[in-house]
Measured scan of single mutants.
Amino acid sequence: NRTSFTQEQIEALEKEFERTHYPDVFARERLAAKIDLPEARIQVWFSNRRAKWRR
């Protein structure tokens, strides 16, 4: 089942994506704690966001 992201979560994710397309585990963990999502969801979001960026 899909995770629905809040506007705040999307903004935080997009901001980090501007900084780096490949956040390391520490950056992902920090973001996970900040926006209250599992680190695995963040990893998947970045993977999908990079795919979207390449299109």
Rank of each mutant, 00 (worst) to 15 (best):
N1M: 05
N1F: 10
N1T: 05
N1H: 15
N1G: 07
N1L: 04
N1C: 15
R2Q: 14
R2D: 12
R2P: 09
R2G: 08
R2V: 04
R2S: 15
R2W: 11
T3Q: 07
T3E: 14
T3A: 10
T3W: 05
T3D: 14
T3G: 13
T3Y: 06
S4W: 13
S4C: 09
S4Y: 10
S4P: 11
S4M: 14
S4H: 11
F5K: 02
F5Q: 05
F5P: 05
F5W: 06
F5E: 08
F5G: 03
T6Y: 04
T6L: 05
T6G: 06
T6N: 10
T6K: 06
T6I: 02
T6S: 12
T6V: 03
T6P: 03
Q7F: 10
Q7S: 13
Q7D: 10
Q7L: 09
Q7Y: 10
E8F: 15
E8P: 10
E8H: 06
E8R: 10
E8N: 03
E8Q: 15
E8L: 07
E8D: 14
Q9D: 03
Q9K: 05
Q9G: 02
Q9P: 00
Q9H: 05
I10T: 14
I10F: 02
I10A: 11
I10W: 12
I10Q: 11
I10L: 13
I10K: 03
I10E: 06
E11W: 05
E11M: 12
E11Q: 09
E11P: 02
E11G: 10
E11N: 08
E11R: 08
E11A: 13
A12G: 06
A12M: 08
A12V: 10
A12F: 11
L13Q: 00
L13W: 00
L13N: 00
L13S: 00
L13C: 03
E14F: 02
E14K: 00
E14L: 03
K15W: 08
K15D: 11
K15I: 13
K15M: 09
K15R: 13
K15V: 08
E16N: 04
E16W: 02
E16K: 01
E16T: 10
E16R: 01
E16D: 03
F17K: 00
F17L: 01
F17M: 01
F17Y: 04
F17H: 00
F17Q: 00
F17V: 01
E18W: 06
E18Y: 03
E18F: 08
E18T: 09
E18H: 04
E18V: 08
E18N: 10
E18A: 11
R19E: 11
R19V: 08
R19S: 08
R19F: 07
R19L: 12
R19D: 13
R19M: 08
R19Y: 06
T20I: 06
T20H: 05
T20D: 12
T20A: 05
T20S: 12
T20E: 12
T20R: 04
H21P: 14
H21C: 04
Y22D: 07
Y22A: 05
Y22L: 04
Y22H: 07
Y22K: 07
Y22G: 01
Y22R: 05
P23W: 00
P23M: 05
P23I: 04
P23F: 03
P23L: 07
P23S: 00
P23Q: 02
P23H: 00
D24W: 01
D24R: 00
D24S: 09
D24V: 01
D24K: 00
D24I: 00
V25G: 14
V25S: 14
V25T: 13
V25K: 11
V25N: 14
F26E: 15
F26K: 15
F26R: 14
F26Q: 15
F26H: 14
F26T: 14
F26L: 15
F26S: 15
A27I: 03
A27G: 05
A27D: 13
A27M: 09
A27Q: 14
A27W: 03
A27K: 04
A27L: 07
A27N: 07
A27C: 15
R28K: 08
R28Y: 12
R28C: 14
E29T: 13
E29H: 07
E29R: 15
E29P: 01
E29V: 09
E29S: 13
R30D: 15
R30S: 15
R30F: 05
R30N: 09
R30L: 09
L31H: 01
L31Q: 03
L31C: 02
L31N: 00
L31T: 02
L31A: 01
L31R: 00
A32C: 04
A32S: 08
A32V: 03
A32Q: 07
A32Y: 01
A33G: 11
A33M: 09
A33C: 07
A33S: 13
A33H: 07
K34N: 04
K34E: 09
K34Y: 04
K34A: 07
K34M: 13
K34W: 03
K34T: 14
I35D: 02
I35S: 03
I35Y: 13
I35L: 09
I35H: 11
I35K: 02
D36W: 04
D36G: 11
D36C: 11
D36V: 07
D36T: 03
D36L: 12
D36E: 13
L37K: 02
L37S: 05
L37C: 10
L37E: 10
L37Q: 12
L37G: 01
P38N: 14
P38H: 13
P38F: 02
P38W: 04
P38T: 14
P38K: 08
P38C: 10
P38S: 12
E39Y: 05
E39L: 12
E39T: 06
E39G: 10
E39D: 07
E39F: 13
E39A: 09
E39Q: 10
A40S: 15
A40F: 08
A40E: 13
A40K: 10
A40G: 08
A40P: 09
A40V: 11
A40H: 07
A40Q: 12
A40T: 12
A40R: 10
A40I: 10
R41G: 08
R41L: 14
R41M: 15
R41Q: 08
R41P: 05
R41N: 13
R41A: 13
I42T: 01
I42L: 08
I42Q: 01
I42P: 00
I42V: 09
I42K: 00
I42C: 04
I42F: 02
I42R: 00
Q43K: 11
Q43H: 07
Q43I: 05
Q43S: 11
Q43P: 02
Q43E: 12
V44A: 12
V44T: 13
W45I: 00
W45M: 00
W45L: 00
W45V: 01
F46V: 00
F46S: 03
F46C: 02
S47C: 13
S47N: 06
S47K: 12
S47H: 06
N48L: 12
N48V: 11
N48G: 05
N48Q: 13
N48T: 14
N48F: 09
N48K: 09
R49L: 02
R49D: 00
R49I: 01
R50D: 02
R50S: 02
R50Q: 04
R50A: 04
R50C: 03
R50H: 02
R50I: 06
A51V: 07
A51S: 13
A51H: 07
A51G: 07
A51E: 12
A51M: 10
A51N: 08
A51Y: 08
K52T: 14
K52E: 11
K52D: 11
K52F: 07
W53G: 07
W53N: 10
W53C: 11
W53I: 12
W53S: 14
R54W: 08
R54P: 10
R54H: 13
R54T: 08
R55A: 15
R55P: 12
R55K: 07
R55L: 07
R55M: 05
R55Q: 08
R55W: 05
R55V: 06
R55H: 06
R55E: 05
